[in-house]
Simulated scan of single mutants.
Amino acid sequence: MHDYTIGLMSGTSLDGADGVLVDFSGDTLRVVATASQPFTEAFRAELLALNTPSHNELHRAALAGNELAAVYAQVVADLVQQASAQGITASQISAIGAHGQTVRHQPRQTAAGPANAAYTLQLNNPSLLAELTGLDVVADFRSRDVAAGGQGAPLVPAFHQGVFDRPDAHVAVLNLGGISNLSLLPPSGSSLPVLGFDCGPGNALMDAWCLQCTGQPFDAGGTWAKSGQLIPALLASLLDEPYFSLPIPKSTGRDLFSLAWLAEKLQPFSNERPQDIQNTLTELTVCACTSGVSSYGKKSKELIVCGGGAFNLHLLQRLQAGLPWLRVSTSDERGLPPLQVEAAAFAWLARQMLKRQPGNLPGVTGAVGLRVLGALYPA
């Protein structure tokens, strides 16, 4: 008996939508199909603009949700076509887990903060996605955790635990999307809790600077950053952000680490070479991530990197240099390619919702208890 669920993810890197069809019937999950669809430059620019207050944003956000649903539907169509070639019919797919596109993330900063001031917002139109695909859709995964006093993020540590933990060692898992998040996994079977939190910027600021200066959407392999030199005063200014010193649980997004935040930080350094600024932005991501591991995951023997940043060889080398006591590798070595991990996590979360089983870890998000996450939009 097979157990198929689709997971869709479009993250803070704003590069496009990734999708996987996952079979959960075995002892370990099996990805049976993958697909992706890039965002157009115009759509990417609109999503980026919607991360900050702007003119007529309610109308524009609704239209963006419709466009995202259309992109998601194309990814699903590609997955269903691949599945059909393997003898898997659409009727065998239980649901689509569709995360949506985060444009605001404002959880409570402290447990004593006002509950009615906390929210998280992901653009999507799951009703339209169900209509376009003919499949059940599970969406809006973060809001219930926020309603229960949690951060609503990160939600992937429970999935990471099921896929990447080891019986003999502590393991750290670092997702390098637009924002970086860390899962700290105790040995399987241990009574110790899983920890997880957002470290800070991942690729978002590096990608933005690279695009502005070179016209390329990202620094392939980190070669441009590697050609530059560190600017210590700029790094100190970047790290002088209160978020980095907040205790866990904590989460963040482009609300804080925005282009406006970066522009303000760069004002005193307008005469510096662009490649030196790129090198320093890379080091900011390295410092945020290594500090998280050093503070909460010193027992870790392995750091597994996933997300788009896993392809930045310079960044991986700098992470290894900053964490010499553990081994840095990518999720490829554990059987799940870096660009499939988050989409697979939302397939798992959708399946959890259909089974009415919790998807959050209160020790990670700070929620008052376990909660079933997501809302169902039937086909």
Rank of each mutant, 00 (worst) to 15 (best):
S329A: 10
P358V: 12
S291G: 09
M353D: 05
L315M: 15
Q352G: 01
S329C: 13
T365D: 05
E283G: 02
V364H: 10
R334I: 01
T285D: 07
P324N: 09
C289R: 03
A345I: 00
Q278L: 14
L361H: 04
S291K: 07
F346A: 03
S294T: 11
L316I: 12
L336N: 08
Q317M: 09
G363K: 03
Q320Y: 08
A350M: 03
E302T: 11
L303D: 08
G335D: 08
R356W: 09
H314I: 04
F311G: 06
S329F: 00
A344Q: 06
P338M: 08
A343D: 04
R318G: 04
G366W: 09
P362S: 13
T365L: 08
T280E: 06
L354E: 05
G307T: 02
Y296S: 04
T285Q: 09
R351K: 15
A350K: 01
G322C: 10
R356K: 15
T282G: 14
Q357Y: 10
S295F: 00
N279L: 05
T280A: 04
R327H: 14
N312E: 10
T280D: 03
Q340P: 00
K299I: 00
R334Q: 14
Q320T: 06
A350H: 00
V341G: 01
P337E: 04
G307K: 01
L315Y: 12
M353Q: 15
E342N: 10
Q357E: 15
L319C: 02
R351L: 13
R351W: 01
F346M: 05
C287E: 15
V286R: 05
S331P: 12
A310R: 03
C287T: 14
L326F: 04
T330Q: 13
A343F: 00
K298R: 13
G366R: 12
L361M: 15
T280Y: 03
L349W: 01
P337G: 03
K299F: 06
T280Q: 01
W325E: 15
G322S: 12
P338W: 06
G322Y: 08
Q352W: 00
V328C: 15
A310W: 01
P324T: 08
L354S: 06
T282K: 06
L336T: 13
Q320V: 07
T290P: 09
L323C: 05
M353G: 07
E333P: 00
P324F: 07
Q320H: 09
A288I: 07
G297T: 09
T280K: 03
N360H: 04
S331H: 10
T330D: 13
L319N: 04
A288P: 09
G322V: 09
G307E: 02
C289A: 12
P337R: 12
Q340D: 06
Y296Q: 06
Q320L: 08
Q340K: 00
S295M: 09
R356G: 11
Q357M: 15
T290D: 10
L319T: 02
T285R: 10
A350E: 02
A288S: 15
K299T: 12
W348H: 12
L326E: 06
A288V: 10
G363L: 04
L336H: 05
S329M: 14
E333S: 15
A343V: 01
C306E: 00
E283M: 13
G292W: 05
P362L: 11
V305E: 06
H314Y: 14
G292V: 05
F311I: 00
A310C: 06
I304E: 01
G292H: 06
